[in-house]
Design a protein around this nucleic acid. Structure first.
Length: 324
DNA sequence: TTCCGACCGCACTTCTTCAC
DNA sequence: GTGAAGAAGTGCGGTCGGAA
């Protein structure tokens, strides 16, 4: 069983067009001994749209004029197909779904039969291993973490760096690459019939499920609070806050029992509660709240569109009746 | 019947990170 | 530079129901 690590560079990438100019790969045996490592330079049959916008884009370490001397993707298609397809190998990439997408776009562009292979993603494996799902682990940042020396955006070097990352992860976990995949419940990505699905991990799936649950519960809390606010109709006991409109930060709104008691007190004194920030007389927030909503409230205060901002503790101390 | 306010879905914005 | 994805937040606008 050999491992094939690959990476692709494109002359330009748009929504439905990705003109591949380099297919870099690195084939290794099960002990990560390199058997082959090569950059296949391809004529992209199109202009380069990476660096001609003032230098902020990426710079490929190739002479762009050279690419015109090489055959186009159609010519290299059988070789790339032979590299990626077959039961005797495991294919890996870093953020591989992008490269798989480019392969599909190019096969469509040149009216070639679709690729059909499975692949695993070192980014997905690393995220599962370290349980860091809130941010993607870029190739460059991982090479720094694992102290791997390489030339960024030289495709074969990127593929080599991907292999090194896989090797380092195996060393860290004291296992082989297939064992690593099994250990972190990595499900292979797949491409066939010009369709593709990403490589996933059970941990990331669980993480996304949990995030979805939290989001749903936040939404439900918000809806419950809204239901309460708009359904709470009692006769005010004073006109102390008549014409005065209050609004709370999200974190307070989500503390349902607290938020409800605050609204009751506001209404009891003749005031009103509104979700809308602009135009409210007082915005109540917790100390150190740096949410977007609180930031917006502070901006509106500066613009004179909010009367005042009070902290929750100040609001409770001043206005909430003390429980006996 | 009309009007107004509440509800709620969804589009939009902003930000971050990553890819080439 | 362009493009994409995801997260978080905002606010518009259609719909509905209750009060006058």
């Amino acid at each position: 069983m050999n491992y094939v690590f690959f990476d692709i560079e494109c002359a330009c990438v748009y929504k439905n067009v990705a003109k591949i100019c380099v297919f870099g790969y690195c084939v290794a045996d099960e002990n990560f001994n390199i058997l082959e490592k090569e950059d296949i330079l391809i004529n992209p049959n199109g202009k380069f749209h990476l660096t001609d916008h003032g230098g902020d884009g990426i710079v490929l370490p190739y002479d762009y004029g050279e690419f015109k001397k090489y055959p186009d993707f159609k010519k290299f298609y059988p070789r790339i197909k032979q590299l990626l397809e077959g039961e005797d190998k495991l294919v890996f990439g870093h953020a591989a779904i992008n490269d798989v997408k480019y392969l599909n776009l190019e096969t469509r562009r040149y009216k070639l039969p679709a690729f059909r292979f499975r692949f695993a993603d070192t980014q997905v494996i690393y995220m599962a291993m370290t349980e860091t799902f809130d941010r993607q682990a870029g190739l460059e940042s991982l090479t720094q973490i694992f102290e791997i020396d390489y030339t960024p955006h030289r495709a074969a070097d990127d593929a080599y760096a991907t292999m090194c990352i896989a090797r380092e992860m195996c060393e860290k976990e004291h296992c082989t690459l297939p064992e690593l995949l099994e250990k972190f419940n990595i499900r292979f990505g797949k491409t066939e019939n010009y369709q593709y699905g990403n490589c996933t991990s059970a941990r990331r799936t669980a993480y996304l499920r949990e995030k979805s649950r939290i989001k749903r519960e936040r939404g439900e809390k918000r809806a419950k609070f809204n239901d309460f606010v708009y359904g709470y109709r009692v006769r005010p006991q004073s006109n102390e806050w008549k014409g005065k409109r209050f609004s709370f930060s999200r974190s307070i709104e989500e503390e349902l029992s607290l938020a409800k008691s605050l609204v009751k007190e506001i209404v009891r004194r003749g005031g009103k509660y509104s979700l809308k920030l602009s135009g409210c007389n007082a915005f109540v927030e917790e100390e150190g709240d740096d949410s977007v909503r609180s930031g917006a409230a502070h901006k509106l205060l500066e613009e004179g569109k909010i009367g005042e901002i009070i902290t929750l503790s100040e609001f409770c101390r001043q206005y909430m009746p003390k429980e006996e």
